[in-house]
């Protein structure tokens, strides 16, 4: 058996849901003759994550990200397949397991709403059985890393969203978990706060060699923290590997931006690559990766160039393409397969 802290094999979570048509007759129909359909929230996913890795878990809404994290943290029983985290079967919810992991959901909170965050910290100290000296040390570190000092004694309901998230993270990490499941920890936060939270997660990972799975809709979170990403869509695993490779595979092009020193007249710009934008003296080309350097030197020698930059296309576009391709593949499949997949 693998010694990786997170081992997931053939994990599935199917739900039975019933649809209801609108209105009273719909209610009546649903009462008399309820039609169930199966939703495959997570459909045969396998992966392993090594100690100290930060893995980005990507996918559109309803892809099965949260369902997977809930199975890994023991809140949901898998329909079939297995997950092992730190050697535990999560859904048995053993206290020894719960004391070594944490799940932070950007949309749910554990802090006691009416009291200052420090009160929740003290409760957590007791129920996680954290010794006094370790608690004091950890609280100091978290206070320093997250600038908590001015927040700890303020009522949670009087904190801003970002301040609250910082306290949530601290409450979730006081017991020094080895495994972190972060479900959109930066949701709704402004850019500065997003950056802070991101830096903090990176720092925590380095200091404690913690294993992290992170979901986010902000690609900046992912590009800053995760060398490896797992892409899921409609419960299926679409990609598991490095972020760079994903870009290379899905978007086999580079973006070449050229600032010209003189307006272009009569030049056939499309000879260098697909022209994305040509406005005044600035032009953007999409150039096949393999021809990037050759094309760049041609541009430099043949065009009046003031400045040139070569970049990977934005990761948002890359991910969007993954999902487009997945949707196309699904359409092909669904012609001979009537199974429904949907939200989770």
């Amino acid at each position: 058996m693998s010694s990786a802290p997170i081992v997931v094999s053939n994990l599935k979570k199917y739900y039975q849901v019933h649809d209801k048509e609108p209105g009273f007759s719909g209610s009546l129909k649903s009462f008399v003759n309820r039609k169930y359909r199966q939703v495959k929230a997570v459909d045969d996913i396998s992966f392993e994550i090594d100690a100290g890795e930060i893995v980005g878990f990507l996918g559109p809404n309803g892809a099965g990200k949260t369902t997977t994290l809930k199975m890994l943290s023991g809140l949901l029983h898998p329909t079939s397949g297995t997950a092992r985290v730190l050697g535990f079967v999560p859904q048995t919810r053993r206290a020894e397991y719960l004391r070594q992991m944490t799940l932070v959901m950007g949309q749910k909170q554990q802090l006691t709403w009416d009291l200052p965050a420090i009160e929740t910290f003290l409760v957590n100290q007791a129920i996680y059985e954290i010794p006094d000296d370790q608690y004091a040390k950890m609280l100091d570190e978290l206070t320093e890393l997250l600038d908590l000092a001015p927040l700890l004694k303020k009522q949670v309901r009087k904190l801003s969203l970002g301040e609250r998230m910082k306290c949530e993270l601290a409450a979730a990490l006081l017991h020094q978990p080895q495994v972190l499941f972060l479900d959109e920890p930066t949701i709704g936060l402004d850019v500065t706060m997003q950056t802070k939270i991101r830096q903090f997660v990176g720092e925590y990972n380095r200091r404690y060699n913690a294993t992290v799975i992170l979901t986010s809709h902000y690609m900046a979170d992912v590009t800053a923290l995760c060398k490896r990403v797992i892409v899921v869509d409609h419960g299926k695993l679409m990609y598991d590997g490095s972020l760079a490779e994903l870009s290379a595979r899905i978007a086999p092009h580079k973006l070449v931006r050229v600032e010209l020193s003189a307006p272009m007249n009569g030049h056939n710009l499309s000879a260098y690559g697909e022209v994305l934008k040509a406005k005044g003296q600035s032009v953007e080309f999409l150039v096949p990766r393999s021809k990037t350097s050759e094309t760049a030197s041609r541009i430099l020698s043949e065009l009046p160039v003031a400045d040139v930059t070569i970049e990977d296309p934005p990761i948002e576009d890359v991910i969007a393409r993954v999902f487009e391709q997945a949707a196309l593949a699904r359409q092909d499949r669904s012609e001979n397969d009537e199974d429904e997949s949907g939200d989770a």
Binding site: T112, D114, L115, T120, A126, E129
Partner: peptide, 22 residues
């Protein structure tokens, strides 16, 4: 003893919440 400690912490918090709504 550890359970007493846990109950003490939980109940202290709960009294705090109650006093907010006295």
């Amino acid at each position: 003893l550890i359970w007493l400690h846990k109950y003490f912490a939980l109940t202290r918090r709960s009294i705090g919440v109650q006093l907010e709504y006295r």
